[in-house]
Amino acid sequence: MAHERVRAALAGRTARVEAVEVRDAAEAARWGMAGSPTVLIDGTDPFAQAGTVPSVSCRIYRHADGTVDGAPRVDELRQALGAAGGPGAVEEGCCESDLLDPTGRAGRGRRAPAERGLRAVHQAVLRSFTATGQAPQTATLTPFAASAGRPAHEVLAELAREDFLTLDANGQIRAAYPFSAVPTAHRVTLESGVSMWSMCAIDALGIPEMLGTDAVIASPDPVTGEPVTVSSENGHMVWEPDSAVVVAGRRSCSGPAAAVCCDALNFFTSADSARSWLEQHPDVQGKTLSQQQAAKIGRQIFGPLLAAG
């Protein structure tokens, strides 16, 4: 988790990141590790508390809002990097990683933990969308949840709380990022012929990367209504028109990505059209991404979701 959040805080900026395994108290004292994980920036722990002694115990981070966590949050890491004059320092205005925090679960990624049957059920849901274009019924997930000794509805509820998916009022799957069980503006057709809806433009771009297959993405420009098509051919993406871009946007409210940003992550036929849409939506903090930037983000977020282990 700490490594993923450091990577998210760097947001593609160049830095040397070293992972050090600390085996005993003497090494903890030598490195200044106040529990695992400890993040050092140029050898200094920016999150150190007065009176804390080096140890190989587990470390808990208390955030400004009173919540606790197993690692510093992305915004805290970015602030620490900026204070140190490091590559996390960013110019004023919205930052790409800030805008995409909800999409990537604030640097925690969208690959569910293996514990408590979460990953087994989550991957079963994703594979159902892949095979049929639709969400599975809860009953079909029972064997995957049973491997962890839990009922399927309980595992789904936990996955929803952690924003790996969303449920409707009846507890049925409404979305499992990158897939949507209800129509959206973004339609993805796999090489197999199966079609499905995606939650947003970034999610759509992540689907062929996640599945390792060719796909065609079709989505209208929200301003002009003109079609944008992205075709994945042997891992190479062809955009039509070639001037197409993606807007990464989010609202200031809190909540799951489906509420905060999914409808503000769209394809546009041109940067001018994207700029026009942002001007028409002052409630959205947004930035225009190039084709390469958008594809890279989709790959980073969704590429690992179905990996074994």
Score class of each variant (00 low, 15 high):
Gly117Gln: 15
Glu76Arg: 00
Gly149Tyr: 09
Gln292His: 09
Glu162Arg: 13
Pro183Gln: 15
Glu209Phe: 09
Ser55Arg: 13
Thr288Met: 00
Val22Pro: 03
Asp42Leu: 00
Ser254Asp: 14
Pro222Ser: 11
Ile173Gln: 07
Gln293Val: 00
Thr213Ile: 12
Glu191Ser: 14
Ser276Lys: 01
Met210Val: 06
His122Cys: 10
Gly309Met: 10
Ala146Ile: 10
Leu10His: 03
Gln293Met: 03
Met199Asp: 11
Thr38Cys: 08
Ser192Asn: 11
Ala294Val: 09
Ser36Gly: 06
Val228Ile: 12
Ala83Ile: 02
Glu4Gln: 13
Ser195Met: 10
Gly35Lys: 03
Asp168Cys: 04
Cys261Glu: 01
Pro183Ile: 14
Ala106Lys: 02
Met199Phe: 03
Asp203Tyr: 01
Cys261Leu: 04
Leu40Gly: 00
Met1Tyr: 06
Arg119Tyr: 02
Gly109Lys: 01
Gly12Gln: 04
Pro304Phe: 04
Arg23Pro: 07
Ile207Leu: 05
Lys287Asn: 01
Val121Ala: 11
Asp163Met: 02
Gly51Tyr: 11
Ala271Phe: 07
Ile207Gly: 06
Leu165His: 09
Thr67Gly: 04
Pro87Leu: 03
Ala120Asn: 08
Ala80Glu: 00
Asp45Asn: 09
Gly133His: 13
Ala215His: 12
Pro304Trp: 07
Glu162Thr: 11
Ala259Cys: 14
Trp31Leu: 08
Thr229Arg: 14
Asp263Arg: 05
Val121Asp: 13
Leu99Asn: 02
Ser55His: 14
Glu154Thr: 12
Ser276Trp: 00
Glu76Thr: 05
Phe144Met: 15
Leu289Pro: 03
Leu211Met: 06
Leu165Cys: 09
Ala19Glu: 15
Ile41Lys: 00
Glu162Phe: 10
Ala294Asn: 10
Pro113Phe: 07
Glu226Pro: 10
Ala148Asn: 04
Ser231Asn: 07
Leu278Ile: 00
Ala308Tyr: 03
Pro37Asn: 08
Ala71Ser: 12
Thr14Val: 12
Ala244Trp: 04
Ala15Val: 04
Gln280Pro: 04
Ile60Ala: 10
Ala80Val: 02
Ser270Gly: 05
Gly309Thr: 13
Ala9Asp: 07
Ala15Asn: 03
Ala244Leu: 10
Cys95Ile: 05
Glu154Gly: 12
Ala29Ser: 12
Ile297Trp: 05
Asp272Ile: 02
Met1His: 06
Thr52Cys: 11
Glu158Asn: 07
Leu278Phe: 02
His3Thr: 12
Arg23Asn: 14
Thr213Val: 13
Cys58Ser: 12
Ala271Pro: 02
Leu167Ile: 04
Val22Arg: 01
His281Asn: 14
Ala83Phe: 01
